[in-house]
């Protein structure tokens, strides 16, 4: 059992590279090297957890993400917290880059990634949810349907 765990650990430590496409067609696709975090969780447990907490993000699913890809290693799933922006940005570049992808909303000062009120304070997961339908955080206070479509 112990040996198996170690092997598994080595396997997931190996870096993977993947490609993702932005919303702005003009943007060049870039390869991002991501270090997969090590885990002591057995593969069977990870599969089980993925059933309990399925992803709603097709792109992430295609890339074969499991729990630890995003959340890092953990022992008890109850300890797992929603992601902070820094964690998402390890793959998605920086806030400025994300803001550029939605820069068509700049004109009316309603680009959520460079918000009039919040600038770069919001966590990605405040809108984009992995395990639940995404929401529009701005809609807590605004009639956002006039500005933009539903959140991916």
């Amino acid at each position: 059992m112990k040996k198996l765990l170690i092997v598994l650990g080595v396997l997931v430590i190996a870096s993977i590279a993947f490609v993702y496409e932005g919303m702005n067609a003009k943007e060049q696709s870039k390869e991002t090297a991501v270090n997969m975090p090590a885990t002591t969780l057995p593969a069977s447990k990870l599969t089980e957890l993925q059933k309990d907490y399925p992803s709603k993000n097709d792109q992430h699913k295609k890339l074969g993400f499991d729990c630890v890809t995003c959340h890092g290693d953990f022992k008890d799933p109850k300890e797992v917290l929603p992601l902070q922006k820094e964690q998402c940005l390890t793959c998605h570049g920086d806030y400025k880059k994300v803001a550029k992808r939605t820069s068509f909303l700049d004109k009316k000062e309603v680009n959520p990634h460079d918000g009039f009120h919040h600038k770069d304070q919001l966590d990605c997961a405040d809108c984009h949810r992995e395990h639940k339908p995404s929401v529009n955080y701005c809609a807590n206070c605004h009639d956002t349907k006039v500005w933009m479509k539903s959140t991916p």
């Binding site: 309603v110 809609a139 206070c141 605004h142 009639d143 006039v146 500005w147």
Partner: peptide
């Protein structure tokens, strides 16, 4: 007019 005036403020 720009729909930026808060919830139901358009």
């Amino acid at each position: 007019m720009d729909a930026k005036n808060g919830y139901q403020g358009t």
